[in-house]
């Protein structure tokens, strides 16, 4: 699953550590999410969507999506 986390973080000029703190996860989790190595759980995806004030489907994109 692809995501726009890195772009959204860049827009706010946040470090991975800052984003991790905002989401209450480790920096490794943020890094793994951004590099596409790990897909978040549904509760974490909702937290991310709430933090960036965007719908989930605008942040996370299915690989097979047209």
């Amino acid at each position: 699953m692809k995501n726009r986390l890195k772009t959204l973080r860049a827009e706010r000029d946040w470090t991975q550590a800052r984003l991790a703190q905002e989401l209450d996860v480790s920096r490794q989790t943020v890094n793994a999410l951004e590099t596409g190595k790990y897909d978040p759980s549904l509760p974490l995806a909702f937290r991310i969507a709430r933090l960036f004030e965007r719908p989930i489907e605008e942040i996370f994109l299915e690989n097979a999506a047209p």
Binding site: T15, Q28, N31, E34
Partner: peptide, 21 residues
């Protein structure tokens, strides 16, 4: 924005939330 794409083993081993630690 700091771009930390690759972390060392000890960065990871010592990472985690305050609760984790």
């Amino acid at each position: 924005m700091t771009d930390e794409t690759r972390q060392g083993f000890w960065d990871i081993a010592c990472s985690g939330t305050a609760t984790d630690r």
